[in-house]
Design a protein around this nucleic acid. Structure first.
Length: 362
DNA sequence: AAGTACTTCAACCGCAGCCAC
DNA sequence: AGTGGCTGCGGTTGAAGTACT
């Protein structure tokens, strides 16, 4: 090889390719003992002939104890569909909303299965519209764009929280060292300023708001990870305290068509629990024209989105593959081969697209 | 049984962005 | 402001597994 990449800090003789059990054990043992700290320094300390990047990837995508492996549930499929329709190929953002799944796993699942199924149905997996349909109206495009903007704003807020929590994070890691168990860092439910959460919350579906309360966690969610690393006590259950930090939420004084999203996302002060946060978000979701922070010239009925998750949405349907209630990745699960599942996918697509089309009240 | 095509997914690559200096 | 270290992200690859002929 002899190749030096990434600015030259990754040396050439490092091992590549699949990880062995022994390597996994070394990495796990080291992180359990010390936390990962600097990924660059980790391989030498852990006795691994790998680059830090490879170690990070292995940990993030495979070894972390809070990763759910195995087949995706139908609820997860639907969530991915909705999120992809909204966010596009922003896998890390999507992973933020799919508990215990990594961005890599979701990306693979999309590329190898969901995208193909949509394509075979004549649905453009990029636009989520039927290929023979007229290319979307500008309003629909605006809706998607604005929702993506909203999510972007939220992610920016997340990033800021992460930055601001780093100081505390390092201190807590020290505490972990003293008071084991060390940072196996199971991300607990972190409150999430999340429009999708609102959709779910306003429906009867148990999706993102599981029995534990608002449990939006992702192995790759920097917010979740950081928040939990930082706060430790920021538990789910909807009532857990969130970071003692500024909270971003929607401007409530914008008025219809008046306020750009960027100006709407602002620090409004400190909020002491996610229940309050959710309450505010739900109020926002009640599409009061005056409250809704987007600047297009029609009302945007979020309630339309809540319907997306309602098919097959009872808890029984959401049993994961561990109890083998169904095999959601098997095309046969929905009653035969792909053609037989057309209804399922058609319904899903209809919900995704119709909620975009019909969700505004003219 | 053997060869080929297809599928899956762990892992890699390179870029972008953040941060410290 | 510029630079380098480092991490995170999305696209891509390729080995292994599976299905098909």
């Amino acid at each position: 090889m002899g190749r030096i990449t990434n600015g030259g800090y990754e040396k050439a003789e490092l091992k590549k390719g699949p990880w062995t059990r022994e390597e996994d054990q070394k990495l796990l043992a080291y992180i359990e003992e010390h936390g990962h700290g600097s990924w660059r320094a980790l391989p030498a300390k852990a006795g691994l002939q790998r680059c830090g990047k490879s170690c990070r990837l292995r940990w993030t995508n495979y070894l972390r104890p809070d990763i759910k492996r195995g087949k995706f549930s139908s609820q997860e499929e639907k969530d991915i569909m909705r999120l992809h329709a909204l966010l596009g190929n922003r896998w890390s953002a999507i992973a933020t909303h799919i508990p215990k799944r990594t961005d890599n796993e979701i990306k693979n699942y999309w590329n190898t299965r969901l995208k193909k199924r949509l394509t075979r149905m004549g649905i453009d997996p990029v636009t989520h519209k039927r290929k023979d349909a007229v290319s979307g109206s500008s309003k629909q495009a605006a809706v998607v764009s604005h929702m993506a903007q909203w999510e972007t704003a939220r992610l920016e807020a997340e990033a800021r929280l992460v930055r601001e929590s780093r100081f505390l994070s390092s201190k807590l890691q020290l505490l972990h060292k003293v008071n084991s168990p060390p940072p196996l860092l199971r991300p607990q439910a972190a409150p999430c300023l999340d429009v999708l959460k609102v959709w779910q919350a306003t429906s009867n579906c148990n999706g993102f708001f599981g029995p534990r309360g608002g449990c939006l966690e992702s192995p790759t969610s920097t917010l979740n990870f950081a928040v939990n690393t930082t706060v430790g006590g920021a538990r789910g259950g909807g009532g857990g305290s969130i970071l003692d930090d500024d909270v971003v939420f929607m401007n409530t004084s914008g008025g219809c068509g008046g306020v750009k999203l960027n100006s709407c996302v602002e620090v409004k002060g400190k909020m002491d629990n996610s229940t309050q946060l959710l309450h505010d978000m739900k109020n926002t979701a009640n599409y009061s024209t005056a409250d809704y922070p987007m600047d297009y010239d029609y009302d945007y009925n979020l309630a339309g989105f809540t319907d997306i998750g309602l098919i097959n949405c009872d808890d029984d349907e959401n049993k994961d593959n561990n109890n083998n209630k169904y095999n959601p990745t098997d095309d046969n699960y929905y009653g035969g081969d792909f053609e037989d599942n057309k209804n399922y996918w058609s319904d899903l697509h209809t919900l995704v697209s119709s909620s975009l089309m019909e969700s505004h009240v003219v």
